[in-house]
């Protein structure tokens, strides 16, 4: 009991002593300064929070703005040409005849052909990096190389295609006895196929690496070979992820402009076969928008842009949905 009283006295003395020292006074002054500073901080904090919200909102406004702009600018064409525009087979701006079917066909043909050509390769890369050799210098090399494929500018693909692929395809066409032009759907698809490999490959790789090892081990323990494990465990498990990767590749191929523009031949006619020349939505816009001075002409090209926008948005959204469902499981 006595000691506690003593303690209390000491503490009290301590406090009173501390209060009167000059150091304490300085501390108090410093404290006041600190409080003033803090008031400024609070204001800055509110400004910062508000800025963040405004910028978050700006993204929504930007995307909605892009869509509305495309829609509004397409109205003259929608009014003048109606929905039949998309099924019209003739494109002749001089005579004011606009039909977008050749471009739709060109886009779909090049994209799906490219996809078909690239899938074996991108899946092979995905399996190679995801299952056979996930680590090591060889894997690193391949991974980086495939990433670099996506880094090369598309205008360079186009130029290379123009200088190298077109002559090759031309002599190939000559040897099988069809009109040898070199330009056309097939050449575009070849270039596109190379360009879209990385998208399906990298997504596929990360999906394959997410396959739980106990599933694979269960199959191995039953005596399955490596190929059987891949075919009956890994591929079914990652099916939706691989599909999403293909969708991303497709979205990329549909919107690709420069490389295709440079090798497709740019003829506004319905392609007869995969070797004929043609035009895609993106390449006709690239070629003609700058000089389309007539209202409906201009608007018709923008309407193509709107179609391209909507199609890629839908494809990408489906892809993202599939991925997020896959990763949440």
């Amino acid at each position: 009991m006595e000691t506690s009283v003593e303690n209390e006295l000491i503490t009290r003395n301590d406090i009173s002593l501390r209060v009167i020292t000059s150091e304490k006074i300085r501390d108090i002054v410093k404290g006041i300064k600190r409080v003033k500073r803090s008031h400024r901080q609070i204001r800055a904090e509110n400004v910062f929070r508000r800025t963040l919200v405004i910028i978050g909102l700006a993204m929504v406004v930007l995307v909605v703005g892009i869509m509305l702009t495309l829609i509004v600018q397409s109205i003259p064409s929608l009014k003048a040409l109606g929905i039949g525009y998309l099924w019209g087979q003739t494109w002749d701006p001089v005579r004011d005849v606009y039909g977008a079917l050749p471009f739709l066909a060109g886009t779909l043909l090049t994209s799906f052909l490219a996809l078909a050509l690239s899938i074996p390769f991108s899946f092979a890369v995905a399996i190679f990096l995801g299952e056979y050799y996930p680590k090591g210098w060889l894997a690193n090399l391949l991974k980086n190389t495939v990433e670099l494929i996506a880094a090369v500018p598309s205008v360079i693909y186009g130029f290379w295609g123009l200088a190298v692929l077109v002559p090759i395809v031309r002599s190939m066409e000559a040897s099988i006895g069809i009109p040898s032009i070199g330009y056309g759907i097939f050449t575009s698809s070849l270039i596109l196929a190379v360009m879209v490999i990385p998208y399906a490959a990298s997504l596929g790789r990360s999906m394959i690496q997410m396959v739980p090892s106990n599933l694979k081990e269960a199959a191995y323990s039953l005596g399955a070979t490596r190929w059987e494990v891949i075919r009956s465990v890994i591929l079914p498990y990652t099916r939706s992820g691989l599909f999403a990767g293909v969708l991303l590749s497709l979205g990329r191929a549909l919107g690709e402009t420069m490389a295709v523009t440079m090798v497709i031949g740019n003829t506004p006619l319905m392609p007869k076969n995969i070797f004929s020349t043609g035009n895609t939505m993106a390449s006709v816009i690239a070629n003609e928008l700058g000089e389309a001075d007539k209202m409906v002409y201009n608007s018709a090209l923008i309407e193509l842009g709107l179609v391209l926008f909507l199609v890629t948005v839908v494809i990408n959204m489906i892809g993202k949905k599939v991925i997020s469902r896959f990763t949440n499981e």
Partner: peptide, 8 residues
């Protein structure tokens, strides 16, 4: 009080 003062 503002949380900043409290936490100081």
């Amino acid at each position: 009080m503002h949380p900043i003062f409290v936490r100081l």
